[in-house]
Design a protein around this nucleic acid. Structure first.
Lengths: 226, 226
DNA sequence: GGATGTGAACGACTTCACAGCG
DNA sequence: CGCTGTGAAGTCGTTCACATCC
């Protein structure tokens, strides 16, 4: 609707060199990072694109293309220095520093996330909890006090949280998300099965568990047929 | 590696008409389905591609292309009948029947999934629980007994579970997955942060929470810069 | 008029294939 | 020789634009 008409979308000259960093590639960066971290501890100080590809189920060319976005840190005939590669990945992913995280909705999912060691390991620190249930407010979960929704603005500001995990019921999600945005949160990881409407400057990643399970059912169903 | 060389991968004739159903499209099917179900209850008996697109943040052309995979069930000048569209989506997703699901690893994440109403609503029924912790074995969670890992073969067979949710710690994941496969499971939804190696005939969907949070950090980081 | 269905254009991502260099 | 880095080719998915039909 209301897009451009005919010739329109011409870009600079030819196709140049610089391709943009694709979203899919960013997901693989996390994969590389997690896979490399044990290597560093085990003293594997060099890794080839072939090895990474095989162990992660990718092609070697793709691994090299991805890593090329981090700069020229490989050595021809040898491979990539594990240490440098990890550092470059962390920098590129924006996790070469600590991120403070708020959690809205303290149910089982939130508790699972609170105990998940992977977050802390990658520099994510959960600093604030919120729940609408009066029975939860004031209680402590994993050492953190649960706050009422009307404390969002104050507590988010104090805690320095920039990211939020949204684990409230579907019908409350949009309202709570709006509150988080008003409180100054910059990005939301949404677990509620609804499509959130947020201002453009707020980043959003959605994880929908029912959709994943449906995808699995589809694949199995398909496997059974042709 | 060890791929084909030159001419290789030729496909039937030209490019014909039939395009394959993309993975991304399947994910959107779930989205459409969830969005449409309330409409049916509210008596909205027709819906246009434009409306769906706007409410889900897509383009109308994409919605039409997706729905075209389900057959020609729209009426020009009118839209799609909600009821038919829902039925076609469920059939295509393979959820026009019940799926029995086993859960391996009864931690907080599993408990969250057990309570998640969206699963049951879409025809997924959790029928068996497993955990390696002796303190859990024999206890009941949400009405289901927790079984020891060595009962996998017997219980999976009895319960008729075809899908499994894998919510065990990373270092146990591959071993438990192998056990699930040996027990006759046909698809695994993996929450452990490892890349599983499975036989080709077993379907796999992976949900990695740390990766999602890292994506969010990347987006926020990027938004802050250029 | 209004909305579907769809070839064609477009753009994004992946793989190929090889030059370049340690 | 082995492995990286990268244009070029290929594949896949999305958007455009319009014929078509109620």
């Amino acid at each position: 609707m209301a897009r451009q008409k005919g010739i329109g979308t011409r870009r600079a000259a030819g196709n140049g060199g610089e391709t943009r960093l694709s979203r899919a590639a960013v997901g693989r960066f996390s994969l590389y990072l997690r896979h490399l971290e044990p290597f560093e501890r085990e003293g594997v100080d060099t890794v080839s694109s072939r090895r990474l590809a095989q162990e992660l189920g990718l092609t070697d060319a793709q691994v090299r293309k991805d890593i090329a976005f981090l700069g020229s840190l490989g050595h021809r005939g040898v491979g990539y220095p594990t240490r440098d590669l990890i550092a470059a990945l962390r920098r590129r992913l924006g996790i070469d520093r600590q991120w403070n995280v708020a959690v809205a909705g303290v149910g089982n999912l939130a508790r699972a996330l609170l105990r998940y060691r992977g977050f802390k390991q990658q520099g994510f620190r959960i600093v604030a909890l919120f729940d609408a249930d009066p029975a939860q407010i004031g209680r402590r979960v994993e050492g953190l006090e649960v706050h009422a929704p009307d404390a969002l603005g104050r507590i988010i500001g104090q805690s320095g949280a920039e990211l939020a995990l949204l684990t409230v019921p579907a019908d409350a999600a949009q309202g709570v998300a709006d509150g988080l945005v008003a409180a100054g949160i910059r990005g939301i990881l949404n677990f509620a099965p609804v499509v959130l409407r947020l201002p453009k400057h707020i980043s959003l990643v959605a994880v929908d568990l029912a959709i994943q399970l449906e995808q699995l059912a589809f694949l199995v169903d398909r496997q059974g047929k042709g």
